[in-house]
């Protein structure tokens, strides 16, 4: 194979094409960074650079607080999704009970329900039980929306785990709870990582749930903060871009770190 790596004109053209695509894909980052390096007046006049927008960022947008809010909401939601999804996946794959495949089908079809279809009743329900102050309403909605997919993924994954492994554990003295946490979960790390990353990105990047189900301005996640800032009348675009860049950073890091699981997880149901 090494000998075929000699540089042909075709491959150079290919490389240049790929470089061009890379430039296009990096464009959002370039916009965020360059636009943020102006003050508002420099931005309007189109010349000069300054870190001023970064320095004043926290005045316009409580970035630190909002990133923290986003982090908390993500963490708790994902924790709930894993805590209910792992046992359910185990139950559907290994502890089949009466009508379990029918129930499974029902849960999986819930994947198809777009939030907008149920957002009105959901909003009224959550408001009535008083969960729109604080994070918990949003966490519940995120968890409910993420659970069907995670159950689908975990069930598929656990079906691939040999029954004998669970049986060996049971004969060795484990109960079903023990078999789940001490045998099945440690083996399911790739599936757990997939669910974690996909849900992290989804929740971190979401706007609608945060917008509706979190009424306290102080509890807002970063996406809502940005959207609110953007819809303001006297928005400083450099500051907006600085905030955007900050908000994009955590999801990007998670994404790059777990990329290899993601490819596997996305195609777990189809690629066999």
């Amino acid at each position: 194979m090494k000998t075929r790596r000699s540089v042909s004109p075709g491959r150079i053209a290919l490389f240049v094409t790929m470089l061009a695509i890379a430039v296009a894909m990096l464009y959002p980052f370039w916009v965020m960074i360059t636009d943020s390096l102006h003050t508002q007046s420099q931005f309007i006049s189109g010349s000069g650079f300054s870190l001023g927008s970064w320095r004043q960022l926290s005045a316009a947008l409580p970035v630190g607080r909002q990133v923290l809010n986003s982090t908390l909401i993500c963490t708790v939601s994902i924790f709930v999704i894993l805590a209910v999804g792992l046992p359910a996946g185990f139950a559907f794959a290994k502890l089949r009970f009466r009508a379990s495949s029918l129930v499974f089908l029902g849960v999986v079809s819930a994947m198809m329900v777009p939030l907008q279809a149920i957002v009105m009743p959901e909003f009224v329900n959550i408001t009535r039980i008083g969960l729109t102050s604080g994070y918990f309403g949003a966490v519940l909605v995120y968890a409910a929306l993420g659970t069907p997919f995670s159950i689908f993924l975990f069930t598929t994954y656990f079906r691939g785990v040999p029954d004998e492994l669970v049986e060996a554990g049971i004969v060795d003295g484990l109960g079903y709870v023990g078999a789940l946490w001490r045998l099945v979960v440690p083996i399911a790390v790739p599936a757990i990582a997939t669910v974690t990353v996909l849900q992290f990105i989804q929740i971190w990047d979401d706007l609608l749930v945060g917008l509706l189900f979190i009424q306290n301005t102080a509890d807002r996640p970063i996406t809502v903060g940005l959207a609110a800032l953007a819809s303001g009348r006297t928005t400083s675009i450099p500051q907006l871009m600085a905030g955007s860049f900050v908000s994009a950073l955590p999801a990007m890091l998670v994404y790059l770190g777990f990329q290899r699981y993601l490819v596997k997880g996305l195609t777990m149901g189809i690629d066999r």
Partner: peptide
């Protein structure tokens, strides 16, 4: 099963893949 105090050897061995040999045996 856990209260029967019997040990079983499976056809495909069913070793715990995330544990060492010693951990498998001592589990």
């Amino acid at each position: 099963p856990k209260d029967r105090d019997v040990a079983m050897v499976f056809q495909n061995y069913a070793l715990y893949p995330h544990m060492s040999v010693a951990q498998n045996m001592g589990f």
